[in-house]
Write a protein that binds this DNA or RNA. Structure first.
Lengths: 202, 202
DNA sequence: TAGATTGTTAATCGATTAACAATC
DNA sequence: TAGATTGTTAATCGATTAACAATC
């Protein structure tokens, strides 16, 4: 299979999420255009790579389509283990707000540089001080980390997580974290989002 | 001036943030490549549109470069007003975690559908029940909203914010919010970020 | 049947990469 | 001078758009 473009991959990820919350049995590329803003042309093109082999003119079976997209993208079929690195205001909120409910991502550990923080908080999963990062991440086979430490600790924390075996980081800090061969970083920053809005408004 | 591509705009937004935290006086496209992963070629190409008119071989003046990027992108020069719509666990954390400290974005109001929620919480800015959205947003001239309500209320809330004059929405929910002529939406979702990581790892 | 919609090809458009003269 | 780095052009590569036959 030829490789997917970055833009196409991101569209499909977004569409998988959109379809997982879609209420009808069938969906058309036109309906998707109206709800998401992606042109129906590009949507059909993206879907054509899935080799659905369906009919011609009656739209897509929403469930089958979702399954095909998830398979093509390699989205989780079984539970995937995550940790939260940094248990400040934001990290604690992520851990408590049930954001992973109904997904296959599961938080299995939390870390903080401050020993008292890990002792004061409690959660449905164990919390550890920073000196346990290496042993816990490798023992629990944690794949993903949500990086929510203070900016100044971001790179040091990321480095330790990566050395311990984490392969994907969702970066909530404002620090740039370098990617490497097998480690990917997604930046989820409120300030970057607002800056992007400003730039698009111009 | 010819219009910027979507990809170039996002790179520049990211680079502006990177440069704002850069500690040296001068910076080269190669150093940027190493820290951010963008190729030095594409970085130089992006910068060339700024018309810096600097020297040839001694890198860029980091401060001048940052100023030129911010001007080109239309990033804030003066304070810009934001509100938080939805004061659940995540919304409250955003409001408390000082994420806008040192930026020109300022939270000036919070909204929630639950009257008791706006009465119980307190903040450095006023909190209002949902029936005040329209009047407060227009009176305070709020430009941006952080959408952090429960998924099922996301579209209704977004619609009311837009009707009241909000022009940019940072969407923390999992619901797709349609953009329109003058209203832009940026999705900042932990689950989308993890899905994108999975898709890239494949 | 008429209208709607898909899947796919061809055409267009645009972005990235490679390369290198200029010059610090 | 030698090495490094910019700014820019040309070449390549890839994505999007337009269009339409197939067919539900």
């Amino acid at each position: 299979m030829e490789k997917m473009s970055n833009a196409a991959r991101r569209r499909l990820v977004f569409l998988a999420n959109f379809l997982s919350r879609y209420e009808n049995d069938r969906v058309t590329s036109k309906a998707i255009q109206e709800a998401t803003g992606f042109s129906s042309d590009v949507v059909r093109k993206d879907f054509s790579r899935l080799g659905l082999g369906g009919g011609f003119s009656n739209g897509y079976d929403a469930k089958k389509l979702l399954g095909a997209i998830r398979a093509e993208l390699g989205l989780p079929q079984t539970e995937r283990r995550c940790c939260i690195a940094g248990l400040g205001t934001l990290g604690e909120a992520v851990m408590r707000c049930g954001i992973f409910d109904g997904t296959l991502y599961k938080i299995v550990a939390g870390f903080d540089f401050r020993v008292n923080r890990t002792e004061v908080l409690n959660a449905d999963f164990p919390l550890y001080p920073a000196n346990k990062i290496e042993s816990v991440v490798s023992r629990m086979e944690i794949e993903f980390a949500v990086l929510a430490v203070e900016n100044e600790y971001a790179r040091a924390m990321a480095e330790r997580l990566i050395k311990s075996g984490v392969r994907g980081i969702v970066n909530f800090t404002n620090e740039a974290i370098a990617e490497s061969e097998n480690v990917f970083v997604e930046n989820v920053s409120l300030v970057l989002a607002l800056d992007n809005l400003c730039a698009r408004m111009k």
